[in-house]
């Protein structure tokens, strides 16, 4: 059984909503990414989404755009990130890791090389934001062969036909984008998220993670009532940005925000 499946299965069995933090690898510098990943686990991360920086992050708001720029200024590459994963795995073999990013860096490495290298170092799933299932055929086969989960997005605009076909090709979990907009967007309408999740559940038993617009303990708890996992990105990246000049402070602050969210999720 994949690490993602067993972790999310256990959370569900215990009535817990999984907490899924996102940080951009290499932000604010590549040397501390692995220690930040451990800090996320210390704060209660059930799964970590590790962002692969891209020069043109079209689906991201300013917070993650700047994170990409900081990471790329240090030359962070997909190969460096796979090395970070390998290093993380020396101390942690339990927490599932999902790489999240855009297609072009993967394309530059080569789909087959990426799939086998990622599986080898201990990546569990991959979410490529600009790769809808229509274009993902070859990649999905390689991921399946390498036992990597293919995580796809669903959005408020996805109609029944698309929900059905995306559920059919997804493995691990489905990432529901809670708002029309970019990462770090403002308003989150919990009622509409609830309705859409109910609709999606008529097509799949896969766990549903919800991201975009979850910025604090309150919004995590509100969405956590209906989601199997809450995904937190920009709120954490904001902490990294605010402390980029004193990176030794970042780890504890990330842990603290996640703990706050974990408590709120468990209390609700």
């Amino acid at each position: 059984m994949s690490r993602i499946k067993s972790v999310l299965g256990a959370a569900k069995a215990n009535g817990r909503t999984a907490l899924i933090p996102y940080i951009t690898a290499g932000d604010p510098n590549p040397d501390i990414t692995v220690s930040l990943m451990h800090a996320l686990v210390a704060g209660g991360a059930d799964i970590i989404e590790l962002g692969v920086p891209f020069s043109d992050p079209m689906a991201d708001g300013p917070v993650i755009q700047l994170a990409c720029e900081r990471a790329l200024a240090h030359g962070t590459s997909l190969r460096n990130i796979l090395a970070m994963v390998a290093k993380f795995r020396e101390q942690n073999t339990e927490t599932p890791l999902v790489l999240m990013g855009y297609l072009n860096p993967v394309e530059a490495m080569g789909y087959d090389v990426f799939a086998s290298e990622a599986a080898k170092v201990g990546v569990d799933g991959v979410l490529i934001v600009d790769l809808p299932p229509e274009e993902a055929g070859e990649m999905a086969q390689l991921f399946e062969a390498a036992q990597l989960d293919s995580i796809f997005l669903l959005a408020p605009t996805s109609d029944a036909g698309r929900i059905k076909s995306i559920c059919e090709v997804s493995t691990g979990y489905i990432y529901y984008v809670s708002v029309k907009g970019v990462t770090g967007s403002a308003s989150l309408d919990v009622e509409s998220v609830k309705t859409k999740l109910e609709e999606i559940r008529t097509y799949t038993d896969l766990p549903l993670g919800v991201g975009f617009g979850i910025k604090d303990a309150a919004s995590a708890a509100a969405v956590g009532k209906y989601a199997d996992g809450v995904i937190v990105g920009s709120a954490l990246v904001n902490i990294i940005a605010a402390n980029a000049k004193s990176p030794q402070l970042i780890a504890n602050k990330l842990t603290a925000l996640l703990q706050e969210m974990r408590q709120a999720l468990d209390a609700s």
Partner: peptide
């Protein structure tokens, strides 16, 4: 060519 965008834009 093709259509490489995030899901939110696909239906449009």
């Amino acid at each position: 060519g093709g259509r490489y965008v995030s899901e939110t834009l696909m239906p449009s």
